[in-house]
Amino acid sequence: MTTTNGEFITFDGVHKSFGKNVVLDDLSFSVGEGERVTLIGPSGSGKTTILRMLMTLTRPDRGTIGVDGDYLYHEKRGDQLVPASDGHIRKVRSRITMVFQHFNLFPNMKVLRNVTEAPIHVLGKPKDEAEARGKELLELVGLGDKLDAHPSQLSGGQQQRVAIARALAVDPDVLLLDEVTSALDPELAAEVLDVLRDIAKTTDVTMLLVTHAMKFARDVSHRVLMFNEGRIIEDASPEQLFNEPEHERTKSFLRSVIDET
């Protein structure tokens, strides 16, 4: 995998605090097109907030976030950056989607409809085309026999795999994975990670992952960013970061995570 555009996603001077608690402190970094970047760090270090900002679920207090040349929260008017309209945000957001820790499948829709609803009603795909693609994706995640099941009839691992199929169905350029196996026991987590490894191998979607599954992070990422107290304290290849971390905080964090698992 080569990165064609080193600045596909850009964070520039992004700041976010909740009350007195500074979550992201003047953060700048970029991610290349097709790059897989894992964000690690202790909880509360701002990793999830980064994904949520890209998904427009949490607004930054200051700074700009760019996606392929467009700003997510700003529009260019002449030489000036003005706050983006809802239409602009929707347009830029259409390139991004997210898989959540708690799956968040729609319980009022059966499995196939969970996957086809957005392609039909957001992307405007014809129903039969969306259904054919939906079945293909559910096949890919190993759930070709569950099209007519209700989400409540599936295990957590199966629900998460449906959520992955649902995310891929909107043809995203950027896939955000927010602790997608944290709510699953190890066996179910493994089946989800296998599916994601497959997707990482067979597609060129840009991925930002927050995960505590370090072996998985090492396998799929091109780069790992270590967060601490709202800042990136180490930015390196997985080999470098996991084998020879430079920062003392990274070493102690990795030790604690590995002890845990």
Partner: peptide, 26 residues
């Protein structure tokens, strides 16, 4: 649950679609 609305945003539903397809049926 807020996660339902967040999932609807992640799929880029319009506010009206979020309400009609996700929130109200539940």
């Amino acid at each position: 649950p807020p996660g339902q609305i967040e999932a609807a945003i992640a799929l880029n539903f319009t506010p009206w679609q979020r309400l009609r397809k996700v929130v109200l049926p539940q």
